[in-house]
């Protein structure tokens, strides 16, 4: 499980790294095309928007893996170690449900719905854009399971620090 997590972390960082690089280059290209070449790019913005959706959802998945999504932990921190573990377990079950029902099941429904719908400038199927949802859902499912099983360990470690 630990090795799998390392591989998935790395995969997500590579995906997001490529995406943000491509988006930066395309944005600069837009400016160059407009001013230096005087032929404004007609498709770059739409491509960037699609990549941004993939970037956002895969980044969000990665952050679940690092357990860095912002939460208000003020009350949780007042609890005993046992209570904290329980809350973290519940939290990860909720996350698992969201990943499975909303992102994977709901995502697949939307992909099916939009298979024949095309983006106006590039003509790419909108299903490509919505596909980011179930795929990120898979990553989040893994992280929710991973975090659920490792919660005890990390909290006792944290406890011994204090």
């Amino acid at each position: 499980m630990n090795n799998a997590k390392k591989i998935i972390d790395k995969t997500l960082l590579i995906i997001t790294g490529i995406l943000i690089s491509v988006m930066s280059i395309l944005s600069i290209w837009q400016v160059v095309a407009r001013y230096i070449l005087s032929t404004p790019s007609t498709v770059s913005e739409e491509i960037i928007r699609m990549l941004l959706i993939w970037f956002s959802l895969t980044s969000a998945a990665y952050v679940f893996g690092q357990q860095k999504h912002i939460a208000i932990v003020f009350f949780r921190d007042k609890l005993s170690i046992k209570g904290q573990i329980m809350i973290l377990r519940i939290s990860n079950i909720i996350l698992l449900l969201i990943a499975l029902v909303l992102m994977i099941w709901g995502g697949i429904q939307v992909v099916n719905l939009t298979l024949t719908q095309v983006a106006p400038s590039t003509g790419i199927s909108m299903a490509f854009m919505y596909g980011a949802l179930p795929i990120s859902g898979l990553f989040i499912t893994f992280y929710a399971l991973y975090n659920f099983t490792t919660v005890k360990l990390s909290i006792t470690e944290k406890g011994s620090d204090a």
Binding site: T16, S56, L57, S59, Q66, K68, H69
Partner: peptide
């Protein structure tokens, strides 16, 4: 970058 923006964009 990914940690900060993944959180904000979600």
């Amino acid at each position: 970058t990914v940690e900060i923006t993944g959180m904000i964009l979600l």
